[in-house]
Design a protein around this nucleic acid. Structure first.
Lengths: 230, 230
DNA sequence: GGCCATAGTATTGTATACATAGAATGAATA
DNA sequence: TATTCATTCTATGTATACAATACTATGGCC
């Protein structure tokens, strides 16, 4: 969707990644100046990225008060998880009506990756767990659906950042495995049920004990997210 | 979602409305300069609006080549309609599990409006028909779901603009009436079925004969969409 | 007559500058 | 000591200016 040719893309992408990975926590102020310095671009460029992130719901852009990482309320949190259930249910339904061979192949390949980094690289492991769901959506062949799932998964990360203490074991590998098995069997009902339980367990863990954590320097965090040649 | 305090909001809103109402047809170039002049704002401000519209899929913003009204392909069209089916199915399902009294009341009030302007004010009639679906989504109480439905309904208008000759009788009043009846009866299966058929008939009419129409001056069209004190 | 190269024009990408609203600081008073 | 108001300062809103890219038109060449 986003065209990566402009200069604001790296800013957008880094911010997005940092928010999803919870390096930038909900509520963190995102001053245009300092972000611009970090990426060596002007405020104009930063602003474009922020406008886009606001449209996606990851950033809250209030007039004359600047941008900050969205702080979802508990009501929004429930709302978003419910929406996610709806979308991923649709994904399961569609995948089970398609040719399973290439789908299962791609999913199993992803699972190997997930296993590889489990307990080795936590950050990467978390990212892969989220990308499993995005991959599922992409395999339906529907770009619209994939975009929506992508967006909603990101927002779920935000929720986990706010309400859960940590989402390391967020997505159980076993549950992913079972989902793949259900798809492979072409059993839509079972696949939907597995996915439902999987998401529900994530949600349960998320919406238990809220706690706020201390702030940190934005520029320092973002510096780690600059991708050369992005 | 969008904060209406900034100066770019009127630009965004007018463009959006113009695109939805098909005054700005798919493919129409949207030069920053002329739009800025129309609204007496700078290109910076216009650009923010365009970035947002791009994120919503109504506008196509290509690097160094500017913005134009999105031209959905036939594949995207099918994709979007399928997504709409998914979302509105969810809406029906939720509404049927809720307290029907206030819901039905609101819906019937809307229906009266729709009747009022049928065959009187075509533009308004079309708008109201679309807003019926948005109202349904809003009545679920889920802002996320309502946003998604809003977005997808807008994109469907775009599709109609591209592939149907005109979408005057886009949404049959009778079908809306039947949907309300199904909700009132609390019959989720029937409501879902009615909605499915309703959307399918819209889709069928939409994806028949594609035709392109001539261009027109953007500024002239937009001038009609400026809302004083917006 | 058609095709390619080049110059000129128009439009976008991005940075900077100025205006303005909010936040922060500090002094004066209850 | 707490509170309030004035002032200062910081950050955002927006416009403008310059740079770079894409489009257009003209003319030479085949």
């Amino acid at each position: 969707m986003y065209k990566s040719t402009t200069r604001s893309f790296p800013v957008y992408d880094s911010l997005r990644q940092a928010i999803i990975e919870q390096a930038l926590k909900p509520g963190t102020k995102l001053p245009e100046d300092s972000i611009g310095e970090t990426f060596s671009v002007s405020r104009t460029t930063v602003r474009n990225a922020l406008v886009r992130l606001d449209a996606e719901g990851l950033v809250d852009l209030q007039p004359n008060r600047g941008a900050s990482v969205s702080v979802p309320t508990i009501e929004e949190a429930h709302d978003i998880f419910e929406m996610r259930q709806c979308l991923e249910r649709e994904v399961m339904d569609r995948l089970c009506r398609m040719d399973k061979k290439p789908i299962v192949k791609a999913l199993k390949a992803h699972l190997v990756e997930e296993k590889k980094y489990l307990d080795v690289d936590t950050t990467r492991s978390i990212r892969l767990a989220g990308e499993f769901h995005i991959l599922l959506a992409e395999l339906t062949g529907s770009r619209i659906l994939a975009n929506y799932v992508n967006e909603i998964v990101s927002r779920c990360s935000l929720i986990l950042a706010r309400f859960a203490q940590a989402h390391s074991a967020q997505c159980g590998l076993d549950e992913h495995t079972e989902i793949i098995a259900a798809i492979e069997a072409g059993d839509a009902d079972r696949a939907i049920m597995q996915m439902h339980r999987h998401l529900h367990s994530v949600q349960d863990r998320a919406l238990l004990d809220p706690d706020e954590r201390g702030k940190e320097d934005v520029s320092a965090i973002l510096a780690r997210y600059i991708v050369p040649n992005a």
